[in-house]
Amino acid sequence: MLSRLNPLTTLAACGAAATFTVAASNWPVSVAVAVAALGAGVGAGVLRRVLAASAVILLPLWFSLLVLHGLFFPEGRTVLAGWGPARITVEGLAFALEMGTRTTGCVLVLLLFSFVVNVPDLVATMTTRRIPPQFGYVLASTLTLAPAITEQLARIRQAQEARGLVLGGSLVQRLAAARLQMVPLVLALIQDAAERAHALDARGFNSPGPHSTYREVADTRGQRTFRRAVLGLAAAAVILRLSASWFGVPVLPSPLAGNE
């Protein structure tokens, strides 16, 4: 369902939700955004991948925040427990909670975008929007290159083992082996890239003027209106927050309504 939307619509919605989360900086809002992102992930059938990718990022972050602010928060006044320099304070825990939920909300909503968006559609849309084609190239090429490089590295490792390179052993030995694998990898990548550059140039990649797209990406009036609305909402939230901080305008005390 989500993946059939125009990629710009998904991008606008997720970007706006992340901006809104930061502007609100209020843990109930952050939690609401995170839950909404997970709900949308269920709907799009990408929940498992979003959870797996976010766990790698968020678990170390939460651990680090809780240890850092939970134990060492010199500004804290309400001490719950203390061992020498380490003191558990209410303020420290609250700060960790606030920061952690905010990042969690943003990470989940942005990863949802990554897993839902159809990259070829996104690249085609960017081309029609006159974004330099180079950007689309770098994006799409990085995504296809990553698995290819993994494969190439495995091949290099096999070839070198067959030459008598013993992998493993001490850290120094492993580092030396890593260097020997890096060299042919980087050489091959740079030489392949040079070849590809010529081919791209010959196929007119660098020519000035508008580029067209073979792929047709659907867009609707409703989606265009929706994009304008969410981006406007996010801008309003940012302006409200900045003016609150500079001119002392009171910020709404309760969490604002969800972004959906």
Partner: peptide
């Protein structure tokens, strides 16, 4: 910066960027 620099890069440099990104990320 990206908008300013990217269109001026020759293709031979541009094609190295994805390679660099994968190395960075990996």
């Amino acid at each position: 910066l990206i908008l300013g620099v990217l269109p001026t890069l020759p293709t031979s440099t541009l094609v190295l960027i994805p390679v660099a990104l994968v190395l960075n990320i990996a």
